[in-house]
């Protein structure tokens, strides 16, 4: 299944350049780009992209964009953007990157989309790691810090874990982890 990619960028030149790079790609379906972030929230709801490649200078509150959907947000940069801002994204594409690097960054950015397309119900290594941490009683924030990822990534992993196992509560996931020998009693807090 192709991943649906939405580009949000004011410059037509850059949009066309990206389209040129991504068009022949089998992994992505490039949706009609947005040139501003004005109607972005509605657009996300309507088109349900897996990945949004967005110029960070256009959005002030990135967490609002994520809302309920498990989408990957990738920053598109060609000028200086503060590190603290980029930290909230699942990946960074610099327009000076090579074609291969750009494609790889986009493919890597979306664990959620990747998982869905595989229709695979086995937990990935990353999901297992998140599960083990949760079972130890850690909060999303603590898990994020321990695994060096963003809180959003942790939430997205949690959604995938629940989707695969059918188990929502942390207590239930702890029982699951024990039954599958992912943790033992000594690691429970």
């Amino acid at each position: 299944m192709k991943q649906r990619l939405l580009i949000v960028e004011p410059s037509e030149v850059i949009i066309e350049g990206l389209k040129g790079i991504l068009d022949g790609q089998i992994r992505f379906k490039v949706l009609e780009p947005e040139m501003s972030a004005d109607n972005l929230e509605e657009r996300l709801l309507a088109t349900r992209p897996d990945i949004v490649l967005v110029n960070p200078t256009l959005v002030s509150n990135i967490s609002r964009l994520r809302g309920e959907h498990a989408l990957a947000l990738v920053a598109l940069v060609y000028q200086y953007v503060e590190r603290d801002v980029l930290k909230n994204y699942d990946g960074v594409v610099d327009i000076r990157d090579s074609r291969a690097v750009i494609i790889e960054t986009l493919a890597q950015a979306s664990p959620a989309a990747e998982e869905r397309s595989k229709n695979n119900y086995e937990l990935t290594k990353r999901e297992t790691a998140v599960l083990v941490q949760l079972a130890q009683g850690k909060t999303n924030k603590e898990v994020a810090d321990a695994l060096n990822v963003s809180v959003h990534t942790v939430i997205s992993h949690r959604k995938n874990i629940t989707h695969k196992t059918g188990i929502k509560s942390v207590a239930g996931l702890t029982v699951y982890a024990m039954l599958n020998n992912l943790i033992d009693e000594s690691s429970l807090l």
């Binding site: 059918g166 929502k168 509560s169 239930g172 699951y176 039954l179």
Partner: peptide, 16 residues
């Protein structure tokens, strides 16, 4: 009912 659903999944899918 949410946790009951968790319990259901544990019981019929994951018990040895």
């Amino acid at each position: 009912e949410g946790k009951l659903n968790d319990l259901l999944n544990i019981v019929f899918k994951y018990l040895p």
